[in-house]
Design a protein around this nucleic acid. Sequence first.
DNA 1: TGACTATATTCAATTATGCTCATATAATAT
DNA 2: ATATTATATGAGCATAATTGAATATAGTCA
Lengths: 125, 125
Amino acid sequence: MNLAEIFKVLGDETRLRIIHLLGWQECCVGEIEIILGISQSNASRHLNRLKQVQVITFNKEAQWVYYRLNQQFIAENKLLYQYLKGKFKDLPECKRDLQRVKKYKSSGLTCQDLREKTKQKNRGL
Amino acid sequence: MNLAEIFKVLGDETRLRIIHLLGWQECCVGEIEIILGISQSNASRHLNRLKQVQVITFNKEAQWVYYRLNQQFIAENKLLYQYLKGKFKDLPECKRDLQRVKKYKSSGLTCQDLREKTKQKNRGL
DNA sequence: TGACTATATTCAATTATGCTCATATAATAT
DNA sequence: ATATTATATGAGCATAATTGAATATAGTCA
């Protein structure tokens, strides 16, 4: 049942945090790693899972893969997404992540700046 | 994260079918078994999982345990429930179950009638 | 070309989930 | 009390999900 599949994919804290994050800005994998503080392979895996059920989509630019919420999914699941947004607002995990998004944004860093050495510096975002 | 927990619990076809069923009528465990065509222990376990996250609640009457949707949960998760109801309408599994609910209702059987021998007769609902 | 970087994938280990069968518990009925 | 019924729970198994570490792939840049 496809509906169960969707919920199964939503039933993971990291994936919910990714959805929340992508609600604020489109991100490449490296940004997701840094902002959420998760490993590269983990990020990639969760993104893949979200992609499978079409919650997110992506486009490649050079060596970067930019992920974003799939507007078609949102359109087809409006109530669910409204529900999520409402809940995200009050979740400590999401509030914390939002702070990090803001910090990252104001840092002026972009995907292109996230070389290994730069990453080190920003581990403590 | 509690939100992830909720989705995890919703991420199972049988549990979604139970929620759908309880949207039509409060049921004892035996009725759920018969209408959904699942085993007793399976029914009990899934009900327990749904109870844990407060999606459903129950009351005991004599030897029967009647389960129903938890109105408080619904109130606190209106958008989610609206979303579910909208999706349920179009799911083949739910349509089939609804037929069975109607058949069961029109049979005039109640929880008290579901003795073993009666169950046999109704396996083919 | 070769070195580097971003992302995806594989492997192995661990843990969680769902199912069945059998048994436990508790209420009812005789 | 004993037998019966409704529901819950435990044990065991098969399968799926999660994770880290290592490796593969593919694009970029010098």
